[in-house]
Amino acid sequence: NQESVVAAQLIPINTALTLVMMTTRVVSPTGIPAEDIPRLISMQVNQVVPMGTTLMPDMVKGYA
């Protein structure tokens, strides 16, 4: 089963992602794949992401 990127903390809107903000977990439905974490660093979220929420492609500016 593929791991997806999950918020390790509350991420406010327009925050640039850092490694410490993200963790990985096997979730359903699947979100952004864990191997894309290096690509996500410094990208901004376009909404508030509560802790434990799976990051979906449409939540990250410039990802999709």
Rank of each mutant, 00 (worst) to 15 (best):
N1I: 15
N1Q: 12
N1T: 15
N1L: 15
Q2P: 15
Q2F: 13
Q2A: 15
E3G: 03
S4V: 02
S4L: 02
S4M: 03
S4F: 04
S4Q: 03
S4R: 02
V5E: 01
V5W: 01
V5C: 03
V5M: 02
V6W: 02
V6T: 12
A7T: 14
A7R: 02
A7W: 02
A7M: 03
A7V: 03
A7H: 01
A8P: 01
A8K: 10
A8C: 06
A8F: 05
A8E: 09
A8M: 14
A8W: 04
Q9P: 01
Q9D: 10
Q9V: 05
L10S: 11
L10D: 11
L10T: 11
L10Y: 09
L10M: 13
L10I: 08
I11T: 01
I11W: 01
I11Y: 01
I11F: 01
I11K: 00
I11C: 02
P12K: 04
P12D: 06
P12R: 11
I13Q: 12
I13L: 10
I13C: 14
N14M: 06
N14R: 05
T15N: 06
T15P: 00
T15I: 05
T15D: 04
T15W: 03
T15Q: 07
A16P: 13
A16Q: 10
A16Y: 06
A16F: 07
L17V: 03
L17G: 00
L17H: 00
L17I: 07
L17Y: 00
L17F: 02
L17A: 00
L17P: 02
L17Q: 00
T18M: 03
T18W: 02
T18R: 04
T18C: 03
T18Q: 05
T18E: 10
L19C: 14
L19G: 08
L19A: 13
L19K: 12
V20S: 10
V20A: 08
M21P: 00
M21T: 05
M21Y: 06
M22N: 01
M22Y: 01
M22L: 14
M22P: 01
M22A: 01
T23A: 12
T23M: 15
T23S: 15
T23W: 14
T23L: 09
T23R: 10
T24P: 12
T24D: 03
T24L: 05
T24V: 12
R25G: 15
R25M: 15
R25S: 15
R25W: 06
R25K: 15
V26T: 13
V26S: 15
V26R: 02
V26Y: 07
V27D: 13
V27E: 04
V27K: 06
V27W: 02
S28T: 14
S28N: 09
S28V: 09
S28G: 08
S28Q: 14
P29C: 14
P29G: 12
P29N: 10
P29H: 09
P29S: 15
T30P: 13
T30N: 14
T30Y: 13
T30I: 11
T30Q: 13
T30R: 02
G31P: 00
G31Q: 05
G31Y: 02
G31C: 04
G31H: 03
I32G: 00
I32F: 07
I32L: 05
I32T: 02
I32N: 01
I32V: 11
P33R: 08
P33I: 10
P33E: 12
P33H: 08
A34E: 14
A34P: 10
E35Q: 11
E35I: 08
E35R: 05
D36C: 14
D36M: 11
D36T: 07
D36L: 14
D36G: 08
D36A: 12
D36V: 13
I37V: 13
I37K: 14
I37H: 03
I37M: 10
I37N: 01
P38F: 11
P38S: 07
P38H: 07
P38Y: 04
P38M: 05
R39G: 10
R39D: 03
R39E: 05
R39V: 07
R39I: 11
L40N: 00
L40F: 02
L40V: 08
L40I: 08
L40G: 00
L40S: 00
I41Y: 05
I41C: 03
I41D: 03
I41A: 08
I41L: 13
S42N: 05
S42M: 05
S42Y: 08
M43T: 07
M43V: 11
M43A: 14
M43E: 05
M43D: 05
Q44W: 06
Q44P: 09
Q44I: 08
Q44N: 11
Q44T: 11
V45M: 03
V45A: 07
V45L: 08
V45E: 00
N46K: 14
N46R: 12
N46T: 10
Q47A: 08
Q47Y: 07
Q47R: 12
Q47I: 09
V48I: 13
V48H: 12
V48D: 14
V48Y: 09
V48F: 09
V49N: 00
V49D: 00
V49A: 03
V49P: 00
V49R: 02
V49S: 01
V49Y: 01
P50Q: 14
P50M: 14
P50A: 13
P50C: 11
P50L: 10
P50D: 14
P50T: 12
P50G: 11
M51K: 12
M51Q: 13
M51F: 08
M51P: 07
M51V: 05
G52K: 05
G52I: 02
G52C: 07
G52D: 14
G52W: 14
G52H: 13
G52E: 12
T53R: 11
T53P: 02
T53L: 12
T53F: 09
T53G: 13
T53I: 14
T54R: 03
T54N: 02
T54E: 02
T54W: 02
T54D: 01
L55P: 01
L55Q: 01
L55F: 10
L55S: 01
L55H: 01
M56T: 12
M56R: 12
M56A: 13
M56G: 13
M56Y: 10
P57K: 08
P57C: 15
P57D: 09
P57F: 09
P57H: 13
P57W: 09
P57I: 06
D58G: 12
D58W: 10
D58C: 15
D58R: 10
D58N: 15
D58H: 15
M59W: 09
M59Y: 07
M59F: 10
M59C: 06
M59S: 04
M59V: 04
M59P: 01
V60S: 01
V60N: 02
V60C: 04
K61T: 08
K61G: 08
K61F: 05
K61C: 15
G62D: 12
G62N: 15
Y63M: 12
Y63R: 03
Y63I: 06
Y63C: 13
Y63N: 11
Y63Q: 04
A64W: 03
A64I: 15
A64C: 15
A64S: 12
